[in-house]
């Protein structure tokens, strides 16, 4: 169980509370500046909330020492840009080995096997990628490596900040499906941060809509998207491309945006 609560001086976040349970996915949607990335930053401790707290399994985030390391192993992040989040000088093997060795999660003679197992988990062929460098991989493969690295420390929670928005459209679903599979198989709690309502709806159990640092709507994914209550959510929905509704309501009404 996972609680976040906080308010910031710049009102980056204002009285935000939610609970993320293992095995569940929360979609955090909003525009840039809505505060959704601030929440991610608080979770990975790049920012400290001015008031409020984050509880993991009922306990606040430890400040130092072994407990903090364990917190960091339990909560991992997948970033938006798979080009920037991997170090171009190191091999794929190195990227995944590091958390294993640092966390003492695998004995020396088991590291190689564990790296391969993780690569297989993200549907990569280990022999094809393990000794390559990030630039030799496609964007989708890189993002899979980033996910494998996040999984290495056996986390219980995954924060995915726009994990597919920089990938080519035809491979986005593949990566999202992978995340969904892993979430189901490993019982991960996933916080999916995005501005894309459509993927948020299909990928999340529950959706939280943020506007200017406040939660304006929260509920089961389909309810929030298909029957939004808050005006802001409705505005977001109306602005999102929706060919289905478009062709249903305005058949023949072509000749430009309305």
């Amino acid at each position: 169980m996972y609680n976040v609560r906080g308010s910031g001086q710049m009102k980056a976040l204002d009285d935000v509370s939610f609970t993320l349970r293992s095995g569940r996915t929360i979609g955090l949607v909003g525009q840039s500046g809505s505060g959704k990335s601030t929440i991610a930053k608080i979770l990975i401790q790049l920012e400290t909330p001015t008031s409020g707290e984050v509880l993991l399994d009922g306990a606040p985030i430890p400040r130092r020492g072994k407990a903090l390391r364990s917190y960091r192993q339990q909560l991992r992040m997948v970033f938006q840009d798979p080009f920037a989040s991997l170090n171009p000088y190191h091999s794929i093997r190195y990227h995944i080995e590091r958390p294993l060795r640092l966390g003492g999660l695998a004995a020396n003679d088991q590291v190689d096997g564990e790296v391969r197992r993780l690569l297989e988990r993200v549907r990569l062929v280990p022999d094809a990628v393990i000794d390559r460098r990030p630039h030799e991989l496609s964007g989708g493969q890189r993002q899979r490596v980033a996910i494998a690295r996040a999984l290495a420390s056996r986390p219980t929670l995954l924060v995915a900040d726009e994990p597919v928005s920089m990938l080519d459209v035809s491979i986005r679903l593949g990566v999202l499906n992978l995340l969904a599979d892993l979430q189901r198989e490993e019982g991960l709690g996933v916080l999916y941060i995005t501005h894309d309502l459509a993927t948020a709806r299909h990928f999340s159990d529950e959706i939280i809509v943020l506007n200017q640092g406040r939660i304006v709507e929260q509920g089961p994914a389909d309810d929030v998207i298909l029957d939004p209550q808050n005006p802001y959510t409705r505005e977001l929905r109306a602005a999102s491309p929706d060919p289905e509704r478009h062709f249903a309501s305005a058949a023949g009404n072509l000749g430009g945006a309305q």
Binding site: A180, A198, D222, D242
Partner: peptide
Amino acid sequence: SSFPRLTGERGVVVR
């Protein structure tokens, strides 16, 4: 089919 439908059928992301 790469684009999940905002209001259409579910099932694009296999869950």
